[in-house]
Amino acid sequence: MTLTAVKSKENNQAGQTENVLVYNTKDLNLWYGDHHALKNINLEINEREVTAIIGPSGCGKSTYIKTLNRMIDLVPGVKTNGSIEYRERDIFNKDFLVEELRTRVGMVFQKPNPFPKSIYENIAFGLKIHGIKNKQIINETVEKSLRGAALWEEVKDRIHEPAYGLSGGQQQRLCIARCLALEPDVILMDEPTSALDPVSTLKIEELIQELKQRYSIIIVTHNMQQAARISDRTAFFLNGEVVEYDVTDTIFNSPADSRTDDYISGRFG
């Protein structure tokens, strides 16, 4: 495919000799009932990078990211074909349990969605469902995760208070911390700042930059500046297709496709 060709050229330009894939999507098609929502998606996503997915609403970007950890299964009437390989394992394979996939691949949602429990219990939840009961390990992980999400200093005196007492931005960082507790390989973020104010948004963006050192991050955003600021690579989705996928600088400065250019320069969407 041409996309791959372009990409490998870019890789050489960026001087990366080795690129390990976390996700390799091959000819993915997805239907909601009769609606063909994703059409022939081919995407290779690199380890320890921030990959942004942009596009107008309804373009399939949210559907795609939800397919990566099979949250899409929760929507009734969804059909897929093609394959998505996560670390060379087909995620649609019966032997690859969704529970394992979702433990390895964390997700942060559009609206902060902490459980109606204490801050501590929110983070301990993931550990407990996976059978980790050792109190010491849990305590350590709670602190470590909150630090990792840059929230520890703000909440260390009240980790046993309800999570609903936190501000929206803090709640979203708590949700990130909740992910980190399971030490995932990939973190999927579905418009994580769309419900937040600019200051909280900035904090999350800083956090993403930092998390990138240790995790692979795939982020869906409707905010092009955000994609430009934080991502290494950007995929532009339109009407269920990948129009262009490239190094972020290229997408924003010299896109190959005129539709990308139109979208970037705000002519539609």
Binding site: H130, N134, K144
Partner: peptide, 18 residues
């Protein structure tokens, strides 16, 4: 994290248990 005797990500007890 280091202060909590977790030297690196790969060897943390959570990861091991998972």
């Amino acid at each position: 994290a280091i202060g909590l005797k977790t030297k690196n990500k790969e060897l943390s007890p959570v990861h091991e248990l998972l």
